[in-house]
Amino acid sequence: MNFLLATIRRELLLAFRNRSEIINPLAFFVIVIALFPLAVSPEASVLANIAPGILWVAALLATLLSLESLFKQDFEDGSLEQIMVSPQSLLLLSIGKVISHWLISGFLLALLSPLLGIMLFLPPIAIGALVSSLLLGTPTLSLIGAIGAGLTVGLRKGGMLISLLVLPLYMPVLIFGAGTVQAGVMGLPIGGYLAILGAMLVLSLMLAPFAIAAALRLSIRG
């Protein structure tokens, strides 16, 4: 448990020391959102219609963008190898890494999303659905994404490959995440959607750490 907390603390400290790690995904999120009114139409009715989908796709891509660096630094300076030969478990390390990744990407994106929702004329009644779906959905994205990051960390050109591996696995989360917001827009109850997002989170929380640890082990052995 101490090791888990120490990992999270270390990761967050590193992120705060190097602000761009925190700011870049957020900036990317905002810029992608700003592209859509320019490309589609600035009209409120059109934007409000596609806002749930845009917000979710942009959040998904922003998480994806920050995945490549998740294990890169630790792999290159050899600390992953040190942890593997030390008695500390790789499983806890992966969980800690994922939690801190989510805190600096998904969590902040969720906090920022109401502002962007308003910019896209998302009806105010749907803001709650937007934030809660992002809060429940993005941890799953971080967990699944970390598997891809672990598999490709030893490769020179891993960035493109991560998206190729991970995006198909993201689709269920995207469907239900955007579905939650859509239901919120129509004023329907969103409890069921959140329950499914929660179920996916629990399932990936149970299984993904093993896959991440196995992926890291094989990448280190190389």
């Binding site: 993904a208 896959a211 094989l218 990448s219 052995r221 190389g222």
Partner: peptide
Amino acid sequence: SGDQAAAILSLVGIVN
């Protein structure tokens, strides 16, 4: 390594 990586990915895929 490629074999093992693909095995992990296909197991993750089959759950999904």
